[in-house]
Design a protein around this nucleic acid. Sequence first.
DNA 1: CTATATTTTTAGACTAATCTAAATTTTATA
DNA 2: TATAAAATTTAGATTAGTCTAAAAATATAG
Lengths: 218, 218
Amino acid sequence: MNSFTEENYLKAIYHLSKDDGSVVTTNSISEAINTTAASVTDMLKKLAEKKLISYVKYQGSTLTESGRMAAANIIRKHRLWEVFLVEKLGFKWDEVHDIAEELEHINSSELIARLDQYLGFPKTDPHGDPIPDSEGNFNHKQLTKVSKLSPGQQGSISGVSEHSAIFLQFLEKTGLTLGAVLKIKEVLEFDGSVTLIIDHVKEITISREVAKNILVVI
Amino acid sequence: MNSFTEENYLKAIYHLSKDDGSVVTTNSISEAINTTAASVTDMLKKLAEKKLISYVKYQGSTLTESGRMAAANIIRKHRLWEVFLVEKLGFKWDEVHDIAEELEHINSSELIARLDQYLGFPKTDPHGDPIPDSEGNFNHKQLTKVSKLSPGQQGSISGVSEHSAIFLQFLEKTGLTLGAVLKIKEVLEFDGSVTLIIDHVKEITISREVAKNILVVI
DNA sequence: CTATATTTTTAGACTAATCTAAATTTTATA
DNA sequence: TATAAAATTTAGATTAGTCTAAAAATATAG
């Protein structure tokens, strides 16, 4: 079994290596989990020893298959708990991250199997992120950043790539919630800001930065 | 905030000091949490430093008011999670202890308040043990051991004082579950074994040892 | 009421995870 | 391509929690 701390490193490496499993630098990990690079180096050696990552000195790390599985399992638990917190306990989508961060380390596959069933086998968490199955497989939808759309195109919001409470609260307030249909009216060449119509009703303008972090299915 | 480990010590001291808050020996703690007496001594100093216990060298320890509150809060979380696991996820009463042992350390009073509400503010856990309120107050019912009853007396099962899975499974199989009405038919003087009638129907005989661990309201 | 047994504490050491400071390697630049 | 800058690793130390072995205090028994 991996320690609480090892799990956090695996999760960080997973998130940093994108979907393609690309090499992750030591520094990027140290930033992600707020430790010194020296501490990260120590842990990388340990994870390599346990065959959870492959690590080449001065070059970086990638998850091995078993490391990837372990990471997917933690993410599965995190996202299932988020669904529980929002759907059953009535938390808002911007309030659940920190609690799920703790719950994800609870160790019982029976518990997770039953929770999954209790929640009706959800496929995404409250932010639209996919929940991997118990074998670690993600069911990838093709998600597009709103910033990539051209006038006339439309899509429905299916996820976000920024999870801070402040951003989520802004989306909530603006009506940019999961499932909302967006139709692009205009993209301003000057700064990339996007004017769009939400659910065929409300017209608003968002910055390029915001548009980059909203993901839609076309 | 207290560490995971500190919380486990506080809980152990609480359970060992009965309801009367009596002095707990170092050795009894080391047995309870399966560590050496030397380790316990170290931790007792630390807890005393934090004013969670009062500790007199070579004499033993008692919880202070703030230690008692902290312990009650952990027990509250443990028991609420047990209710969740049994009522919502369908675990059996003998399966939930170890998982609740992990969940009890999750740190969010908002989470516990919402869980409490979601469960309908239960007053006891699946073993009949009282759930303290958020101020740490237990709602004590007067519970009597079956071994203290005389022929002719009856009561309904409201708790157990032994929580091992093996014992709970035995009770389950025998029909000695929470709420069952017991009427004492005979107490054998030779070994204290008790013959009783469950729910006015089924007659069985249990050992004195078993009788001591079943608690009823008369 | 002394001698022995038991309990508890102290001393010193270990592991996991972290840190700072210094050394080394890689990358970027002039 | 030599050199400076940045990234990474190593060395050595620290903290929390644990351990074993030895010392000290308390309890028990003759």
